[in-house]
Design a protein around this nucleic acid. Structure first.
Lengths: 212, 212
DNA sequence: AATTTACCTTGACAAGTGTCAAGATTCCAG
DNA sequence: CTGGAATCTTGACACTTGTCAAGGTAAATT
């Protein structure tokens, strides 16, 4: 049975059953990757399937072939984005042998992220806000938020460990703090405020010893 | 000269010059208020001028008469929203005579806000995210962010003062922390997580003595 | 009372939207 | 090689969108 003549749900089920699963999912991720480009550029509100298709090597029909609808596509994008994101600081955590090394590695990665991946991160904040309106996003968004909280907690725990102490705050509070600072710095950075990054770094440098 | 036959910029200039300014602006705010209803319900991405008009006592043409375009309307909404927002905790700050009173007043207001104004606040987070994509929003959003930071700072300063100490963090860090916690609690609350509010309260209660 | 101005309604336009299906193409098992 | 399945392209549909202008109504001014 051709995939197209059935609903997308059945299509996907059939594909999974038919051992084409891996290929099918690989294609979905390819498409999600292409979609993330345009989404990062325009944001959720202004991005249409046709716009996504035009900025990619695919035609708009393919997206309908692989995704049951627009929300399905965006959800897949969000999930895919997550995988890229949550391990960002793990290498720093694994290799740092002192508080100083961890601090400098963390700050360097933070700077690099703000400089080169601002678009992806504003999309994250966009989608997290959308989740407040669109229930279909909530599960994935809450899951990613949890992963990010765990990521921050790994950094803080390691930092504390390297000084022989324990973090002075809860995982939730630490994540809220760093996420809030990052979000604010991102907005200022996107508004061409050149002090945004240095101020963020100074703030984090000041905070790390007091809260971890 | 009739307002409609000129561009909106001129129209507004003419209105201002013609002493109709107050009436004109009052009408704009009335319209912005109506628009905020729908925006809070649907979010920026899904809200159209017609939808706004249908959920209000006005026809869609009126919005074009009072605003040069959709962005102009939304900007006005954001600015108007600000005024409602930034004084929320001032009464608590002014009347509290002890740390306990301030804490309880703050937490009560926090709860009330989450319970009764979740829609307005998700809209704020939505618009702040939009500002990362749409430059036209940035100035207003950054300004509101500053006002909110100052609002948090007033609370923290007063809390410290009531204990004869000084806040242990910068205004930026304190705002990032509370904003991050609130944002996370709001999302969970909207996802029908009944622990969202109590957990937020517990976290804030724990944090206040350590950071202020 | 007459006329100009401010305010609002209505309907239209062009562009863009998500969705879908019919047909072309590619791929692969028999 | 061949027939059928998987994949993709194309074009169409019904609908919504922001924008705007022609016209009507109410209010103010002369």
């Amino acid at each position: 049975m051709a995939r197209q003549t059935t609903g997308a749900a059945q299509r996907i089920a059939v594909a999974v059953a038919a051992l084409g699963e891996e290929k099918f999912n690989a294609r979905r991720i390819e498409l999600a990757d292409a979609a993330l480009e345009t989404l990062g550029e325009l944001g959720f509100a202004r991005t249409s399937l046709r716009e996504i298709a035009q900025n990619s090597a695919f035609t708009h029909g393919v997206f309908h072939y692989y995704f049951s609808n627009k929300l399905d596509l965006i959800c897949c994008c969000v999930r895919h984005y997550k995988a890229k994101c949550v391990t960002r600081y793990d290498e720093v955590v694994a290799t740092a042998q002192s508080r100083d090394q961890l601090t400098e590695g963390f700050l360097a990665k933070l700077t690099e992220t703000l400089r080169t991946e601002a678009r992806m991160h504003r999309l994250w904040y966009d989608l997290r806000s959308q989740a407040m309106f669109e229930a279909a996003f909530r599960k994935d968004v809450l899951e990613i938020d949890k992963s990010l909280e765990a990521m921050i907690w790994r950094i803080a725990s390691r930092y504390a460990e390297l000084g022989g102490t324990r973090p002075a705050s809860s995982p939730a509070a630490l994540y809220a703090l760093f996420d809030g600072l990052f979000q604010s710095a991102l907005l200022k950075h996107l508004a061409d405020d050149e002090k945004a990054i240095p101020e963020l770094l100074a703030e984090v440098r000041r905070l790390l010893p007091t809260i971890c």
